[in-house]
Amino acid sequence: MARHRTGRAVVTGGAGFVGSHLCERLLERGSEVVCVDNFATGSPRNVRHLSAAPGFRLVEADVTRPLADTGPVDTVFHLASAASPADYLRLPEETLEAGSLGTRTALRLALRHGARMVLASTSEVYGDPLQYPQQEGYWGNVNPIGPRSVYDEAKRYAEALTMAYHRTHGTDVAIARIFNCYGPRMRPDDGRAVPTFIGQALAGEAITVSGDGLQTRSICYVDDTVRGLLALADSGATGPVNIGSTEELSMLRLAELVRRLAGSGSPIVHIGRPADDPRFRRPDTRLAEKLLDWRPAVRMEEGLRRTIDWFMAERAVPAARSAAGEVTAG
C-alpha cells in the first residue's frame, strides 16, 4: 500500500481537545502545521505551548467560510466540530455547518493542493447500534430528527461528501471513525462522561450517572487516537476505519473506577438518561490492525490516571494564583 508523507499539514479544529494533541505530534515528527480554529469549543490555551515552535502557525478562522491562502499543503486533517452533547446541543446549526460547509472547505483545500484529506468522523454514525461490535460496513441505527441528530447526521453527511469528492474528483481521502476519545485538555464542562466524572470526584460532588448506568462505551486515550489518525494519514487507505479501544465498560463501572483512582468519597447518583443515548458502543478494530498495524497501547486505568493527574494540576493553578494575589474577586 502506498505511503503518504505529511510534510505540511492544515488541522481544522486544531485548538480543540484532539486537534491540539494532533498538532503537537505533527510538530514532533518534523511537519509544519497550520492550526485553524474559531474557538467555538477549542481554546488558544490548548496550543499556547506550541506558539514558539518552528513551523507552527495559528489562524483564527471559521471553516464554514472560505479560508485565506494557507500556502502549500500535503495533508488536511478536518477535526473542526463540536463533539460533546453539551456543545452540539448548544450549537446545533453550527455543528451541522461544520459537517457540511466545513467539510467542503477542507475538501476544496485538499483538491486545490493535491493533498490528502483525513476526516475525523465518529462512532456516532452507528447511532444506537444493532450490531455488536460495530464493523465499518454497518450502516447504523440513527434517529435523523432526534436531538443528537445535529452531530450524527453532520458526520454522516461529511463522510458522504468526502467520498463524493473522492469518486468525482479523485481527491485522496481517508475517513477515521473515532470512538470515545478522552485525556488531558478536555474541558471540565465538556459534558462527556470522563471529564464530568473526574470533575465531580475531585470536587467531592455526587457523580451523576445517566439511567441505570449499564450502557457501555469503549474509551480510547488521546495519544492512541492521534497515533491512529497519523497512521491512517500515512497510509493509502480510504476507510472508513474504526479508531478506538476494545476495552468496553459500563458507565456505572467507569464512575466507580474514576472515584477509586481519584481517591474520592463522592456518592454515585443516577439521573435521567438522555434521548437516543446509545446502549452499547464497542468498535471492531480488525481493519485498523490489518491496514494500519495500529492498536491502542495505553490501558484504561493508566489513561484515566494521567487524565486525573492533569485535571488535578489544572485545579491547582487557579488556587496557586489566588494564594499569590494574582486573582481577585471581580
Rank of each mutant, 00 (worst) to 15 (best):
Y88P: 10
L89A: 09
R90T: 13
L91Y: 08
L91F: 08
E94R: 10
E94L: 08
E94F: 05
E94D: 04
E97S: 15
A98Q: 04
G99W: 00
G99I: 03
S100K: 11
S100T: 15
S100F: 09
T103D: 11
T103H: 11
R104D: 10
T105N: 06
L107Y: 00
L107E: 00
L107N: 04
L109M: 06
L109N: 09
A110Y: 10
R112N: 11
G114S: 05
G114D: 06
R116S: 07
L119A: 06
A120G: 15
A120E: 04
S123T: 03
E124I: 07
E124R: 07
V125R: 03
V125T: 04
Y126E: 06
P129W: 06
L130A: 15
Q131T: 10
Y132T: 11
P133T: 04
Q134E: 12
G137C: 07
W139E: 15
N141A: 08
V142E: 12
N143F: 05
P144H: 13
P144V: 13
P144I: 12
P147Y: 06
S149K: 02
Y151C: 15
Y151T: 15
D152T: 14
K155Y: 13
K155V: 06
R156I: 12
R156D: 12
Y157S: 09
Y157L: 15
E159H: 14
E159Q: 14
E159G: 14
E159I: 13
A160G: 04
A160W: 01
L161C: 13
M163W: 11
M163I: 02
Y165H: 06
Y165P: 03
H166G: 01
H166N: 07
R167H: 04
T168A: 02
H169V: 00
H169A: 14
G170M: 11
T171C: 09
D172E: 12
D172M: 04
V173Q: 08
A174H: 11
A174W: 12
A174P: 03
A174G: 13
I175W: 07
A176C: 05
I178W: 14
F179L: 05
F179R: 13
N180G: 07
C181E: 11
G183D: 01
P184N: 08
R185D: 06
R185L: 14
M186W: 04
M186N: 10
D189E: 09
G191E: 07
R192K: 14
A193C: 13
V194C: 14
P195Q: 10
I198T: 07
G199T: 07
G199S: 07
G199R: 09
L202M: 02
L202A: 08
L202H: 01
